[in-house]
Amino acid sequence: MKGQSIKLGISIGDLNGIGGEVVLRTFEDARMLDFCTPVIFASAKTISFLLKHFNLDINFQGVKSADKVIDGKINVVNVWKDNPRIHFGSETPEAGSYAIKSLKAAVSALKADEIDALVTAPINKANIQGDEFNFPGHTDYLNQELEGNSLMFMVSDKLKVGLLTDHVPVNEVTTKITSDLIKQKFKTIHHSLVQDFGVSKPKIAFLGINPHVGDNGVIGKEDDEILIPTLEELRDQGHLTYGPYAADSFFGSGNYKNFDAIIAAYHDQGLIPFKTLAFGKGVNYTAGLNKVRTSPDHGTAFEIAGKGTADINSFKEAVYKALDIYKKREEYAVLTENILQKQPRKKQYSGRSRGK
């Protein structure tokens, strides 16, 4: 990327939601082009409709494919030629279909290195389901398409929360949590903190699986039999792992401020406190992959779609975070390469013995 700005791909999300609005209003500020070259995957006709609807004065460049992007301009890749009807606030199969077309085109460009990072606008998990897309959401799809092991990592400047299980029904949570899963998720978050956020020796706290960490088995045995022994094993390996802590008091007491990241057992255990403390400034980051992807911490917000009142702060934070992480990864790659180059070369054994 020397001499060029970071090419930031953007999937448009559900056309009937607030995705188009928050994307375009974010880049209404021309100063955003000082940080990146946005590449929106939709169509010129769709973007023109949205600009007219929201009365936005933005110039963009329509291109046939992501490899034709013009640096320093707002680019719109024409993923479809037709002009889909937009029904703000409605959950329709058509909107879900176009959301998937945008996402697939953006991910394809990401895999081909035609864009450097990806920010995804919100989709609706119900109307995206079908033969072409059978995933609970972005994270699982990206895990299939990109190298690595994906992990939903909710991040803000002061709080980072990862999950052992994400879009899993509550009655299946304990069946999913194993020692191997805990180690895998810990490894992913630990590496992300080092590589993506520049934390040299991460301190990571775990929340208990059951209320009050199971109360010595009275309220569930999973903490005593699975989580606690695994954390002891990680500590024996020299990692700074703490807990497990009772989730009900951990955030209210401010204890979360003492750690670089917190790992919650399931979706609501981690996301309710995160969104309470960081809503509007939080970002959903998919850690553990070979590419950078972020998204805002909210959904399609059908109830306010099309009204021009959506808060753009979380989407803008998702843009900034994607750019920051991309740069951190470049710095980490250079640092790692320099360390490898400085390591002394091992002398090769010639295979000849010394004679007397």
Results as ranks from 00 to 15, higher is better:
297 D>Y: 11
250 F>T: 09
258 N>R: 11
311 D>S: 12
255 N>D: 13
251 F>A: 08
300 T>A: 10
296 P>K: 13
273 P>F: 03
303 E>T: 14
291 K>N: 12
291 K>R: 15
306 G>R: 10
282 G>D: 02
257 K>Y: 02
249 S>T: 15
302 F>K: 09
322 A>L: 08
267 H>T: 13
314 S>R: 02
272 I>Y: 05
303 E>W: 00
264 A>D: 13
280 G>C: 05
322 A>Y: 03
276 T>I: 08
323 L>I: 15
251 F>V: 05
282 G>A: 06
313 N>Y: 02
304 I>A: 07
303 E>Q: 11
240 L>N: 15
307 K>I: 00
298 H>G: 10
263 I>L: 09
286 T>C: 12
257 K>C: 00
319 V>F: 04
303 E>V: 10
319 V>P: 09
294 T>N: 08
279 F>H: 04
244 P>D: 10
272 I>M: 12
312 I>E: 06
283 V>I: 11
305 A>I: 10
252 G>L: 08
310 A>P: 01
294 T>H: 06
256 Y>E: 11
267 H>M: 13
266 Y>V: 11
268 D>Y: 11
281 K>Y: 10
252 G>T: 01
316 K>D: 00
270 G>K: 11
278 A>I: 00
306 G>F: 05
271 L>C: 09
257 K>H: 05
303 E>S: 14
270 G>Q: 08
253 S>H: 04
261 A>N: 01
303 E>A: 09
310 A>V: 13
260 D>M: 03
289 L>D: 13
241 T>Q: 01
303 E>N: 15
283 V>W: 02
284 N>D: 10
293 R>S: 13
247 A>M: 00
241 T>G: 04
265 A>R: 03
266 Y>W: 10
271 L>P: 13
304 I>H: 03
292 V>F: 06
274 F>C: 09
274 F>M: 06
278 A>N: 14
250 F>D: 06
254 G>W: 02
276 T>F: 07
240 L>T: 02
303 E>C: 05
278 A>E: 15
259 F>P: 04
315 F>R: 04
299 G>M: 12
311 D>K: 14
277 L>P: 00
298 H>K: 05
312 I>S: 02
252 G>D: 07
290 N>W: 01
274 F>L: 08
268 D>A: 13
291 K>D: 06
261 A>D: 03
315 F>P: 01
310 A>G: 12
323 L>C: 10
298 H>E: 10
284 N>I: 05
290 N>V: 02
295 S>I: 07
301 A>K: 13
251 F>T: 05
276 T>K: 04
241 T>S: 12
321 K>N: 06
247 A>D: 01
292 V>T: 15
275 K>P: 06
252 G>N: 14
260 D>S: 04
307 K>S: 14
301 A>M: 07
256 Y>G: 06
261 A>P: 00
278 A>P: 00
302 F>C: 06
319 V>Q: 08
